[in-house]
Simulated assay, not measured.
Amino acid sequence: MNTSFKTIVISDVHLGTKGAKAKEIARFLKQYRCENLILNGDIIDGWQLKKSGSWKRKHTRFFNRVLKMIENHQTNVFYLRGNHDDFLDQILPLQIGKLHIQTDMIYESQGKKYFITHGDVFDSITTNLRWIAYLGDVGYTFLLWLNRVVNYYRFKAGLPYFSLSQYIKGKVKKAVSYIDDYESELAKMAKAKGCDGIICGHIHKAENRMIEGIHYLNSGDWVETMSALAEDHQGNWQLIYYREINFKSLYLPAQTTEDEAWPKENLIPLRKVSFEQNPDELNPPSIRF
């Protein structure tokens, strides 16, 4: 199983909420190496922290894992702003060593360009009618609570995990229509920017498909789906689901340290990256790897 990637993209972790799978994502990141880690929005849920959310030690461990990736493997980390962590607007853009905090970015790899954005900028609900967005957030939080109750009893009965919210999204016609429109609009934006693809999150629906010639990629979420996007060193993208990982086959030998266990010949040297500041947020600087 491949454990070394060029780029890994995760989004919608919602740290600070009860639904966040902080332990699982820290465990996930511990198993993989990548040259670039893109945290594509809603990593911290500022909305919930202002209300009933709470910050726990396991949430801090996630960032400790990210810092170890920077320190031990020289990983470039890009934290892109989402609607739930819009408090980042106060410091954007910011660069501290290999950590970059910004609104969005254009990623170039293997001759292809991808526009990477959380996706809320294309959502008229979150940008124009914030009070409705907050109301929807309350409903989704309740749905997640109900989902935990349902799956508690399913687990005791020996049944597999069941996503109540995904089931409802798939049954409600307006929700299905919204997702289709959302994906189409993002594909149009990528085409308008002269990009070959779009990488986003926001709607908690993992996807890897073509839309009218544009490669549409959505990393899903770490509240229910627990999925990530990964690009290998040949430029191929895939979705990785936490529940499908065989961690036993990934464990490092007990007699070696994490760094010693990785064959030196498998390590791919990092290329130098140049960054430019562009005042136009709709046309961010290209970043080549």
Rank of each mutant, 00 (worst) to 15 (best):
M1C: 13
M1F: 14
T3S: 15
F5Y: 15
K6M: 12
K6E: 15
I8Y: 10
T17W: 07
K18T: 05
K18I: 01
A20R: 00
A22T: 04
A26D: 08
A26W: 07
R27Q: 10
R27L: 08
F28I: 00
F28V: 09
F28D: 14
K30S: 15
K30F: 15
R33V: 07
E35L: 12
I38T: 03
I38D: 13
L39Q: 05
I43L: 14
I44N: 05
L49H: 07
K51M: 10
K56D: 08
R57K: 11
K58G: 06
K58S: 11
T60S: 14
F62M: 09
N64T: 03
I70L: 09
E71G: 06
Q74C: 13
N76V: 02
V77Q: 05
G82V: 05
N83C: 04
F87W: 06
L88S: 00
Q90S: 14
I96D: 13
G97N: 09
K98N: 07
L99V: 03
H100I: 00
H100W: 12
H100D: 10
D104K: 01
I106D: 07
Y107I: 00
E108C: 15
S109I: 08
S109M: 12
Q110H: 12
G111V: 02
F115Y: 14
H118T: 01
H118Q: 03
V121A: 13
D123N: 05
S124W: 15
L129W: 12
W131S: 10
A133G: 11
G136S: 02
G139I: 02
Y140C: 06
Y140N: 07
T141V: 05
L143W: 01
L144H: 10
Y153D: 03
R154L: 08
R154F: 14
F155G: 13
F155N: 13
K156C: 09
K156N: 04
Y161M: 00
F162G: 02
K169I: 09
G170S: 00
K171I: 00
K173C: 08
A175G: 05
Y178K: 01
E183Q: 00
S184T: 09
E185T: 03
E185I: 03
L186E: 11
L186C: 12
A187R: 01
A190C: 11
K191D: 15
C195K: 03
C200T: 09
G201E: 02
I203Y: 12
K205T: 05
N208F: 12
R209P: 01
I214H: 10
I214G: 14
Y216C: 10
N218S: 08
W222V: 01
T225V: 04
S227W: 05
S227H: 03
A228C: 10
L229C: 08
L229G: 13
L229F: 15
E231T: 02
E231A: 12
Q234F: 14
Q234E: 03
G235I: 00
Y242T: 01
R243P: 13
R243S: 12
L252I: 06
T256W: 07
T257K: 01
D259E: 15
D259M: 14
D259Y: 14
A261T: 02
A261L: 03
A261E: 07
W262S: 06
W262M: 06
P263N: 10
N266M: 11
K272Q: 11
E276T: 04
Q277P: 02
N278L: 13
N278E: 11
P279I: 08
E281P: 15
L282W: 15
P285F: 12
S286P: 07
S286W: 11
I287D: 01
I287S: 03
R288V: 11
